[in-house]
Design a protein around this nucleic acid. Sequence first.
DNA 1: TTATTTAATTGCAATATTACAATTAATAAT
DNA 2: ATTATTAATTGTAATATTGCAATTAAATAA
Lengths: 110, 110
Amino acid sequence: MGLAKTEIFTDHQNQIAIFAKAFGHPARVAILQQLFKMDSCYCGSLVDEIGLAQPTISQHLKELRNLGLVKGNVEGTSVCYCIDKDNWTAMKSVMEDFLNQDLPENEDCC
Amino acid sequence: MGLAKTEIFTDHQNQIAIFAKAFGHPARVAILQQLFKMDSCYCGSLVDEIGLAQPTISQHLKELRNLGLVKGNVEGTSVCYCIDKDNWTAMKSVMEDFLNQDLPENEDCC
DNA sequence: TTATTTAATTGCAATATTACAATTAATAAT
DNA sequence: ATTATTAATTGTAATATTGCAATTAAATAA
């Protein structure tokens, strides 16, 4: 049905899925990488850098903003975007705990 | 269009997005968590543990198998699933590099 | 052989996501 | 006030994802 049954999962499981989904599109990966390495983080330069139309970039930025991973500051007619460091660090901790689960010691069934 | 323009991104960016998408649904998160903590990793117990229909679990398992994160071993009429440790470790390295990008030192624009 | 058990596959309906043209909003410049 | 610039929003088309009933496949048990 295209509709995830989130109610049968724990908040923690849903949390991981929501963050992961943010990275589940290469445009958002590219936006974040650009923000990480950048001094100029204007929305317009992201549009130039990545080859997608302005409304598309704007839409991806909105998702990242809604998650709190990115924040934007209006400067005249431009908007300067950057990583929200505190929220990024918090998200990273959740994701790394998931990635770093201990691999079972016992014999594989496979 | 529902169609990601993967061709305009680097292989690395697409790689991150593909892995992240695997974790972008709570059912797959739950499956993986279960496999991590488990001794019995039969498909049927995943169906019991998680409250989704058998074909739905089977479909999620297929995606994880296609990515190489999980492998299954036929044992009679059952199939025993487990984490593919080598591939998990490789994936983890890619994802952690992404998560651990250095936060810019310079002033935020925000 | 004929059940029985377990899991994969098929087919389909419903919802979500992606992308962009067109438009709007908001500020700055003339 | 008019124009230019930049980015958000709206509307829409196309594709993807999710979920499950029904079926099929494959192995075992009787």
